[in-house]
């Protein structure tokens, strides 16, 4: 079985092979990989905001600080998670519903490259002038979305072929 690193790298360099392994009976990975990557991504890109929220919890209001932190995390994780669920629903419909849990996992794997793109570009932007950042962020969003939809399409076609 592949580990998180192997599945993550596999979705970048050999997505079809990685998705095929993930679709096999008894395979692991998918949604847990998505959560693991987001656990890395949030502190990697939002550490100052996390620290500010923690200070607020300590100095002013624990509940207020917790809400700030939850809001910060939610803004990072909601879109990939919802996209995975919707993608999984699409794959379930294409694959005729034989393995619903795996379809959400497959869709989650399709979302990994988009998150890696976000991590890489926004991480490098931390070193770039502030004037560049507002221009780059929408492009990262669009690029990641296209990548996710592309992988979902490949997966859907493979599932449709298998179901036929």
């Amino acid at each position: 079985m592949q580990g998180f690193s192997a599945r993550l790298g596999g979705m970048l360099v050999a997505p079809r092979a990685t998705l095929a392994r993930a679709a096999a009976p008894g395979a692991r990975g998918g949604l847990p990989d998505l959560w693991a990557l987001m656990l890395l991504l949030v502190p990697a890109l939002r550490l100052p905001q996390l620290v500010a929220g923690a200070w607020y919890a300590i100095d002013v209001s624990p509940v207020g600080g917790l809400l700030l932190l939850l809001n910060l995390v939610a803004r990072a994780v909601v879109l990939p998670f919802v996209a995975s669920l919707l993608g999984g629903a699409l794959l379930w419909w294409v694959g005729q519903g034989r393995l619903p849990a795996r379809y959400a996992d497959l869709a989650a794997l399709c979302a990994l490259p988009a998150l890696v793109l976000q991590l890489t570009v926004n991480g490098l932007l931390l070193l770039a002038p502030e004037s560049v950042q507002p221009l780059a962020r929408p492009l990262v969003g669009v690029g990641g979305g296209v990548w996710f939809v592309g992988l979902l399409t490949v997966t859907a076609r493979a599932l449709r072929g298998a179901a036929a």
Binding site: F4, A14, A20
Partner: peptide, 21 residues
């Protein structure tokens, strides 16, 4: 099953991403 070859450096690429984060 889809006819694609396994990439031997998948794990290394994944580790690079984790290390970057």
């Amino acid at each position: 099953a889809l006819g694609a070859e396994e990439a031997p450096w998948s794990r290394a690429v994944g580790r690079v991403v984790v290390a970057f984060a």
